[in-house]
C-alpha cells in the first residue's frame, strides 16, 4: 500500500517535471503528451496486474530525463511553426534554439541576428533622419567609404547622397533585410538542417 503510493508520487514528480519543461507548448497539447507518457509508465510498471515500485523506477530510468523528452517536443513544435511562419520573432526563437544544438544551428542564429540587426539599423536611420538631418545619411568619402548611418560634423569629410529620399530608401532596405533574412532562415531550416537540428537535440 505504502509502496504503491510512493510509486504514484514518483510518477507524478516525473510527469510534473515533464509538464513544467514544456511551458512553451499549448496547454491541450501538453496535457495530451503527459497523458500518453502516464499511460506508458503505468502499463510498463505493472507486474501481475499491480504497479511494482522497482519496475516503476526502471521504467522512468529507461524513459530518460523528462527535460530531454520535453526539449524534443519543443524543438518539433518550434521547427514546425518556423517553416510555416513569417514572423521575425518566431524565426529568432527557432534560430536561438538551433544555436544551442550545434555549429550549423549557430550559423543560422548568427544570420538571423545579423539580418534583423541590419533591418533595425535601417529603420532607425529612417526614423532619426527628421531629427538629425545633417548627421544621418548615406555617406560616401575617401576615408569613410560607403555607409549609411550617423556622421558627426567633425568626422572625416564625406558627401551625402540621398537627402530627403533617405527615410524612404532606408525603409525599403529595412523591409528587404527583414524579408531576406526570414526567407533565408526558412530555407535553411527546411533543407537539411531540419533533420540535423533534431538529430542534435538528443
Amino acid at each position: 500500500m505504502t509502496a504503491n503510493s510512493d510509486s504514484t508520487q514518483l510518477m507524478e514528480y516525473y510527469l510534473g517535471r515533464l509538464r513544467e519543461s514544456m511551458a512553451g507548448l499549448p496547454a491541450a497539447e501538453r496535457e495530451e503528451i503527459v497523458a500518453e507518457i502516464r499511460s506508458h509508465i503505468t502499463e510498463r510498471s505493472l507486474v501481475d496486474g499491480a504497479v511494482d515500485p522497482q519496475r516503476m523506477r526502471e521504467t522512468l530510468e529507461a524513459l530518460g530525463r523528462p527535460e530531454e523528452i520535453a526539449s524534443q517536443y519543443q524543438t518539433n513544435a518550434l521547427l514546425t511553426r518556423a517553416t510555416g511562419s513569417h514572423s521575425p520573432w518566431v524565426m529568432l526563437r527557432a534560430a536561438r534554439r538551433g544555436a544551442m544544438l550545434g555549429a550549423k544551428g549557430f550559423g543560422i542564429f548568427m544570420i538571423a541576428v545579423t539580418g534583423y540587426t541590419m533591418a533595425a539599423t535601417f529603420f532607425l536611420c529612417a526614423a532619426l533622419k527628421p531629427f538629425f538631418p545633417e548627421n544621418i545619411g548615406l555617406w560616401v568619402g575617401s576615408t569613410v567609404g560607403f555607409h549609411m548611418g550617423y556622421r558627426a560634423a567633425h568626422d572625416a569629410p564625406a558627401a551625402e547622397l540621398l537627402g530627403h529620399w533617405l527615410p524612404l530608401v532606408a525603409m525599403v532596405l529595412g523591409l528587404l533585410a527583414i524579408m531576406g533574412t526570414t526567407h533565408a532562415i526558412r530555407v535553411l531550416i527546411r533543407h537539411g538542417s531540419r533533420a540535423k537540428l533534431r538529430w542534435r537535440a538528443e
Binding site: 500518453e36 507518457i37 506508458h40 524513459l63 530518460g64 530525463r65 530531454e68 524534443q72 518539433n76
Partner: peptide, 11 residues
C-alpha cells in the same frame, strides 16, 4: 532512450 519514441511519433 525510450522517451525519444514519443516525440518522434508526434513529429
Amino acid at each position: 532512450a525510450e522517451g525519444t519514441v514519443y516525440p518522434l511519433l508526434s513529429r
